[in-house]
């Protein structure tokens, strides 16, 4: 079985990557822990700590830098939590093995969509629909990469909300943070700038993960020699990631995200094939 120092290093990497791409890091830490001999139930329960640490570590900086759009996060959280609760109930009734292919297909379409958008630095002049306007879904932040204040508006609030139900379903059915789903919906449907998308996803995933935490607390699978180094590593990694994100161009953020997305698509298909075999 692995040791505390290895966990510290791996979770620092997961936190760093999570803070930049808007992912919780569970999709990196769970396979890593299982590969190093940690039983899968412990790996899943303790990865919840990774998700919360990435979320809170990065949000503490992104919120102050106005990269996170709190209003959008709170509005979208309604749909994510609802989806996660429905997903958890469906998971009890239906086998999850075929769902991997459905979610792999969803992520593949997001991969194609994000790839098409890679060349665009900032999506300005977005025509806002009535609901998005009523929900005050807009904001501004200082972009260090292009050295100017970026003002942005979001659109398609209703479709974005419905998309977040799918992200919530994925989280509830498969026991994942579903950050990749959220970032894709933010960018492709709501037209959030990449950096706002990553940081707002980071803000949301912590609350969604917390909503499901009682199950893990009651299960007894949260282990302190695993959770403490994971929390330390992820927090430090995510705080380091927050120092980098705003200096990167949106193109680089999207490119990093598509690489992680490709990894997740392969992981979903692999899990689906293994669960059927």
């Amino acid at each position: 079985m692995t040791n505390i120092l290895t966990i510290l290093l791996a979770s620092s990497f997961a936190g760093f990557l999570g803070a930049i791409t808007g992912l919780g890091g569970g999709s990196i830490m769970v396979p890593f822990l299982v590969a190093t001999g940690i039983p899968v139930k412990y790996a899943i329960a303790n990865s919840m700590i990774t998700i919360i640490a990435t979320s809170s570590g990065s949000a503490s900086a992104y919120v102050r830098e106005r990269l996170t759009n709190i209003k959008a996060a709170m509005y979208l959280e309604i749909f994510t939590i609802t989806g996660a609760i429905i997903g958890a109930y469906i998971a009890l009734l239906a086998p999850s093995k075929y769902l991997y292919f459905f979610f792999a297909a969803f992520l593949s379409s997001s991969f194609y969509g994000i790839r098409r958008e890679i060349g665009k630095e900032i999506q300005e002049n977005v025509a806002q629909d009535g609901i998005s306007q009523w929900l005050e879904l807009e904001g501004s932040y200082f972009d260090e990469a292009i050295d100017r204040e970026v003002r942005y508006k979001m659109t398609n609030a209703l479709w974005g909300g419905l998309g977040m139900v799918i992200a919530g379903l994925a989280a509830g059915m498969l026991g994942i943070g579903a950050g990749a789903f959220k970032v894709a919906i933010h960018e492709l449907i709501l037209k959030m700038p990449s950096k706002v998308s990553s940081s707002t996803s980071n803000f949301i995933i912590g609350m969604t993960a917390l909503a499901g935490s009682s199950v893990f607390i009651a299960s007894g699978f949260i282990n302190l020699t695993l959770a403490a180094p994971m929390a330390i590593g992820t927090t430090i990694g995510s705080l380091m990631g927050t120092r980098v994100l705003n200096k990167l161009s949106n193109k680089t953020v999207r490119l990093l995200f598509t690489i992680v997305l490709a990894y997740l698509i392969v992981q979903m298909i692999y899990k689906g094939v293994v669960s059927i075999a």
């Binding site: 079985m1 040791n3 505390i4 009682s214 607390i217 282990n223 302190l224 020699t225």
Partner: peptide
């Protein structure tokens, strides 16, 4: 030791988040 110990004494187990 620096190895991960899955000893129950090092586990968190409570009824829910608030009691924990």
């Amino acid at each position: 030791s620096l190895s991960i110990s899955l000893d129950q004494k090092l586990s968190v187990q409570e009824e829910n988040f608030f009691t924990y």
